[in-house]
C-alpha cells in the first residue's frame, strides 16, 4: 500500500548542501548574539517545536540558544518589533503565504537573515537567504514529520559548527550578507518609522544598520511601515508590498 511507504531519500544532495550552509550561517549569527525568531502562520506547532529545540536542547551539555516562536495573528508586526539587526528569522510556510512573503521582503530593513522551510512550489529566487525545501506536492507533507526532520537537522548541524570555533568568526571580506554599501551605487531597503511632519520632507526610517533620517520629497506621501529604497540620504523609490498577494 502506497501510504505505508516512506520515501527512501528524505534529504537529497542539494538540500543537504542548503542545510549545511544555513546551519553555518545560523551558528555564526548565534555566535554574535542573534536571537532566532520563528513564524509559521499555517502550522503554529512547528514554530513552537523549533523554539523549544534551541532553547532546551535534547542533548545534555549543548548550550541553550535564544529562540522564540512568534504566533500572534499578525506575525509581520510581531517580528518587526522583536527583530534587532543581526537576528535571524525562520519561517515554516508554503511559498504563497502572504504574511511570510511580506515578512521576508522587509527583513533587509530590519537587518535580519532569513531561513525558509516549506514544500511544493518554491518561493521566488532571493526571497530568503536560505531556502530549505521539500520537493513534494503532497499536501500532507507538513504532517508527516519531514519539516520536523529538517529543523532537527538544522539544530544538530548548528551545534556541530559550535564545536569548531575557528569557522564562526567571519572576516568582513568573506561576508556575503554584510556588504558595506555606504559608498556603492546600490540602494538600501528602508522601512518608514516616522513619516515627515507637515512642514518637512524628512522621514525617519529603519535600515539594516539602524535608524536614520532620509529625504522623501521624491516619493512623497509616505506612511509608517512603507518600504523605500534609499540612496545618499534620499528615498528614490517605493517598494510594492502587495506583490505576491493573490
Amino acid at each position: 500500500m502506497t501510504t505505508t511507504e516512506v520515501p527512501t531519500t528524505l534529504i537529497g544532495t542539494d538540500l543537504s548542501d542548503d542545510l549545511a550552509s544555513a546551519s553555518l550561517a545560523l551558528a555564526r549569527r548565534f555566535h554574535t548574539g542573534a536571537t532566532l525568531w520563528v513564524i509559521s502562520p499555517q502550522w503554529e506547532p512547528h514554530a513552537h517545536h523549533v523554539a523549544v529545540e534551541f532553547v532546551h536542547p535534547v542533548l545534555m551539555g549543548k548550550r541553550a540558544l535564544p529562540s522564540v516562536a512568534l504566533v500572534e495573528p499578525d506575525p509581520v508586526s510581531q517580528a518587526r518589533v522583536a527583530t534587532r539587526p543581526g537576528d535571524v528569522i525562520l519561517a515554516v510556510a508554503s511559498a504563497d503565504d502572504v504574511q511570510v512573503l511580506d515578512t521576508m521582503r522587509r527583513t533587509p530593513a530590519w537587518g535580519a537573515q532569513t531561513i525558509w522551510i516549506g514544500f511544493g512550489a518554491r518561493p521566488p529566487a532571493g526571497s530568503a537567504d536560505h531556502v530549505l525545501w521539500v520537493e513534494s506536492d503532497d499536501p500532507m507533507v507538513p504532517a508527516t514529520g519531514r519539516f520536523v526532520l529538517m529543523y532537527h537537522l538544522l539544530w544538530e548541524l548548528t551545534h556541530v559548527c559550535f564545536e569548531q570555533p575557528g569557522v564562526l568568526e567571519v572576516k568582513t571580506e568573506d561576508s556575503t550578507d554584510e556588504v558595506c554599501v555606504t559608498c556603492s551605487d546600490e540602494g538600501r531597503l528602508a522601512e518608514v518609522v516616522e513619516p515627515p511632519t507637515p512642514d518637512s520632507t524628512t522621514a525617519l526610517v529603519r535600515t539594516g544598520e539602524g535608524e536614520e533620517p532620509v529625504d522623501v520629497s521624491l516619493v512623497g506621501g509616505v506612511r509608517p511601515n512603507d518600504l523605500l529604497l534609499i540612496h545618499a540620504g534620499a528615498a528614490i523609490t517605493r517598494i510594492d508590498t502587495t506583490e505576491g498577494l493573490a
Binding site: 528524505l10 534529504i11 548542501d17 542545510l19 549545511a20 526532520l149
Partner: peptide, 16 residues
C-alpha cells in the same frame, strides 16, 4: 566543514 555537514544531514535522514 560544509562537506561534512551535508554528508551528516544525508546520513541522519537515511537513518530516519
Amino acid at each position: 566543514l560544509l562537506t561534512d555537514l551535508a554528508a551528516s544531514a544525508r546520513g541522519k535522514a537515511e537513518v530516519s
